[in-house]
Design a protein around this nucleic acid. Structure first.
Lengths: 344, 344
DNA sequence: TTCGTTACCGGGAACGATTGCGTAAAAAAA
DNA sequence: TTTTTTTACGCAATCGTTCCCGGTAACGAA
């Protein structure tokens, strides 16, 4: 079914004018007489004319759209970021195209390629947890394509980046557990090579050191898909509890890891925090309604989206190639609730 | 910062060919000699040529993209629907552009207009709760623009629609409350004129009648934004509890309404289900982790997205105008948990 | 030698909109 | 009246790609 749209030619033909005159009349050019303008405007209104953005994009080599790649929009952290992105983008007259990688490298590649092939003016991306090969992004970046990384960033590509202080988040969470009397603190993290994993575990390790607790590698488990699939978390926790030295607390370094931990404990009748304390990175807005209510490290996701978008729009609208890139770091917040209540 | 992309002209110039020849070589036309093809293909590969989808869209009058308008991607119901939509769309080679109305009519209008102005081939939409004026959609539909409604539909526009059996959902939930011994069952619903409100309350009312309980209008409250803002729910519940006839159970007809009810009760120390039972429409995947775990009517959201997308692609790819439209109805599931446990 | 094929390739219009430039006619200045 | 200026519009190029027409070699057949 073809949807035939009204074009400037239809107006021109109907009114016996040239397309240039119609175009200028619509843009209120001084070169067009008031009578002609009125006639064009009225007829355009009557037949509900809308300029074709595709044609404009082709001519102007810009689309006034920006692309987003996130792991999962179902993840509160990302949906809050997207809301932050939209709040800035729409103000500046940009549209936003959202895509999901579902933590898959292949899907990320497809999305980036689709977005980059000139359907958008710039890209905001948080890497999929599977992604190790960055050539698709390097290629774009080398050719001057505006890219801003947020959340999951990479060192190899020099551009604007926005993150939270993940090390501090991991440190604060671990410190809180230690000070609450927990001794054997396990950590559950996303894929090992991700920036957020490195930093959050770095904070975890630093807190242990500062409190003279020996770092025990066997207490740290990784989930390649960030807990997106429950099995992954189940396996990690199974192996954690099979060890002779059982943890009495766990620090989960991502949203899905945290909730899937709770699910695992509930399924097995392991009581939180009596049997094990739980704290995790999470931005879900139901934490206080959970049983037990959940202690979390919360990231300023909305703000993160705003900052990233501002940086991206700067890149896009800059006249000259930008060589001076910055990495903005926001501060996470620690919320103490029942799931880590002090050990008796 | 301008990002200069490689075009077919660059290849033509470098190789001393015409653009037509290069174009044909790239599309493997029989009219081009094997040597020329090889040369073009290799050079295109070398400089990483990608066809410009904007130019193609302009020429072919199609974009192979479909647009989505939902209230909130942060809402699990909608994010599950989106995943269903993507699963079908990507298989068929379509890209998906997601937009949010945030329950605002104005935002919906902007999004629909942006999407419809030929950036997409068809539209999947669940109306914003504020939306009463449908002229923006009627206009498009009359001109043959492919539209499929899901979740929140309208009678006035005759096209494909996908819903769940909302009346049954409301009926089952209410029946369950009645059979558990609750007498004064309140209902909290979305904006009054929405199809989902009408149907779900219809089920509620039918269940009351079938059990010889008189329908009491004062026990039914509406929230214009579907509980998106907490205040709205707070006001509704305040007025509900100020009445002399206090409810002993509540049926919340939407996701955010349900969780905000729990939040309200928790804040005021009202115990669920001892003081009041709660059941609601919800697709959040944390219901069993809540305190108390939540009884819900769950919709097959993923499937809904799939069905809607299949219908839309049928419309888009149909050669002749489609006049025969259908409304597909899926079945909701009732999950009984602690929040409605039998009254003593 | 000449005609007909076949194999290859180029020119140019088209998609919808903008815009620099050219130019009639009308108005103003000389 | 003549010249200049202003007004108000049209022509055509442009963006990147496809595709309908052609066109021109080379080669075999008559």
């Amino acid at each position: 079914m073809k949807y035939e749209a009204v074009t400037i030619k239809d107006i021109a033909k109907e009114l016996g004018l040239s397309t240039s005159t119609v175009s200028r009349a619509l843009r209120d050019s001084y070169e067009i007489s008031p009578e002609t303008k009125k006639m064009v405007l009225e007829y355009a209104e009557k037949i509900n004319y809308r300029p074709n953005p595709i044609a404009l994009s082709l001519k102007e080599k810009r689309t006034r759209s920006i692309g987003i790649v996130v792991a999962e929009i179902a993840n509160s952290f990302f949906s809050q970021i997207i809301n932050g992105i939209e709040s800035i983008a729409y103000d500046k007259g940009y549209n936003v195209i959202i895509t999901q990688s579902h933590e898959s490298f292949e899907r990320e590649l497809i999305n980036v390629q689709y977005l980059a092939s000139r359907s958008i003016d710039g890209l905001l991306i948080s890497l999929a947890s599977e992604t190790r090969d960055l050539s698709h992004l390097k290629h774009l970046h080398e050719r001057g394509y505006p890219i801003v990384f947020f959340d999951r960033i990479v060192d190899e590509i020099d551009t604007h980046k926005v993150i939270v202080d993940n090390k501090k988040g991991g440190y604060d969470a671990t410190k809180h557990l230690i000070e609450s009397g927990y001794k054997h603190i396990a950590a559950l993290a996303n894929a090992e090579y991700l920036s957020i994993t490195r930093d959050r575990l770095g904070g975890y390790q630093a807190a242990l050191e500062d409190h003279k607790i020996k770092y025990d590698e066997s207490l740290v488990k990784f989930c390649l898909h960030g807990g997106l699939v429950y099995d992954e978390v189940e396996q990690a926790l199974d192996s954690l509890f099979k060890q002779k030295k059982k943890p009495d607390a766990i620090f989960a370094a991502a949203d899905k890891l945290t909730t899937n931990c709770l699910r695992y404990f509930k399924a097995r009748g392991i009581r939180v925090p009596q049997d094990i304390a739980v704290i995790g990175f999470s931005n879900i807005d139901l934490t206080e309604l959970l049983s037990p209510s959940l202690s979390v490290v919360r990231q300023p996701a909305f703000e993160m989206g705003q900052v990233a978008t501002e940086l991206l729009l700067n890149l896009i609208e800059s006249k000259r190639p930008v060589k001076d890139f910055e990495t903005k770091m926001l501060q996470p917040d620690l919320f103490i609730r029942e799931s880590t209540s002090r050990k008796k």
